[in-house]
Design a protein around this nucleic acid. Structure first.
Lengths: 213, 213
DNA sequence: AAAAGTACTTGCCCTATGTCAAGAAATCAA
DNA sequence: TTGATTTCTTGACATAGGGCAAGTACTTTT
């Protein structure tokens, strides 16, 4: 690891995430006031626990998503590929979050996004078919889903808005403030394209910040 | 209206939308394979038809959304206000689309967006409470909702991605290609902030395109 | 330990877009 | 009709960020 390791880590690091306990159980992903213990058990049974090694592709452009993943530990990067060949990081999914390609999964279209683990990960995987059953059998699960989607929609709206209203530096400072762990575990180039700049520019932005805002 | 009227309209125009028939009925908004005629009637009854005059605010920053609107005719603009006072257009809702602030409506938080009619509009309004009943009573309606949300999520993801990968000119050309009616009915400044540039820059972009790409 | 690969920084130059201010044209108010 | 307002354009100048290429430091492989 480069400069960021020198600045932030106790010892010369790697991009592998530090060892950290996973989220306790898959039930932690489904908090909702109307979901009772019985519901949660039924939901939990629909998931399969998996250990994935770094670099695993969960989903590749052109495929049809048929499951989503609750991330117990590790980091997943999603990215889209430009016609000109470059890949643009569209998001990071961390511990406690859900890695999912909504459009492909729920609209049945081939995905335009790729999902790749950036570190060894512990995940709970649930197939679409199981999700669908739960959605129809447990009204509170459908409500949970609607709220999750609302939250996700809000995040993407905010992201689009911030791409307009904030400078690249603003966006970097926000990321540093809100998800500092990403800066320590993810190569700069992925951070850069996620923020909408080149790695060269991000490097200069960091330098400027280091000199004293 | 300025140059765009000279270029595109038959006669000296105004920003009022041309007279056009509204979408036939509110049922047109709820196409879904699992929704039967009985369901659709029940859904339709939950809506109230309204005629709104130009400039009506459907929702203002800080309020709690308690309904959404199916747009039969006219155009609604949504915008967010910058800390620095400027307003940024976040979207346009046209005939056949739904004007809704998902986060406020489904998460119960005060909205950070404003919704304003840019022309006289014919709409069908449905209160949250009616929506909620339908969501719980008609499984197919919940499925419809999930698919609608998936589609909306996809659009916002694409918007964020395009703010990164495309130039302002690209984005303008795309808008011209995909929603030409907007360019003829909406003041340039709103288009500009929606595209993420100043009206000055957009004016230059248009000039460049007019000269011959 | 050497070689190869990856991550990050830096310099040089260029372009897209922003800011500010003025002016022309269209629209609205009365 | 006249004056006020809004819409759109244009010019001069400033700045953020991109493209390319070189260089350094760290990491992985062998």
């Amino acid at each position: 690891m480069g400069t960021s390791a020198q600045l932030h880590s106790e010892k010369a690091g790697t991009y592998h995430s530090d060892v950290q306990s996973p989220v306790c159980s898959v039930q932690d992903f489904y908090h909702h006031p109307e979901l009772g213990p019985g519901d949660l058990e039924q939901i939990a049974r629909a998931h399969e626990y998996q250990q994935l090694s770094r670099g695993t592709m969960l989903l590749q452009e052109g495929q049809h998503a048929n499951a989503y993943y609750c991330i117990g530990s590790g980091i997943v990067r999603s990215f889209a590929t430009n016609p000109s060949g470059k890949d643009i990081t569209t998001g990071f999914t961390c511990r406690g979050q859900i890695a999912i390609e909504v459009a492909s999964l729920f609209l049945g279209v081939p995905t335009k996004e790729n999902f790749q683990t950036l570190s060894d990960c512990q995940v709970w995987k649930i197939p679409l078919i199981s999700f669908h059953k739960l959605f129809n059998q447990i009204p509170a699960f459908a409500s949970w889903g609607r709220e999750w989607m609302s939250q996700a929609l809000l995040m993407y709206k905010l992201r689009a808005l911030r791409m307009i209203t904030e400078t690249a530096k603003d966006r970097y400072l926000r990321l540093q403030r809100e998800q500092p762990e990403l800066l320590q575990q993810v190569p700069l180039k992925y951070i850069a394209s996620f923020l909408g700049v080149t790695d060269t520019s991000l490097s200069r932005i960091r330098k400027e910040i280091a000199r004293g805002n």
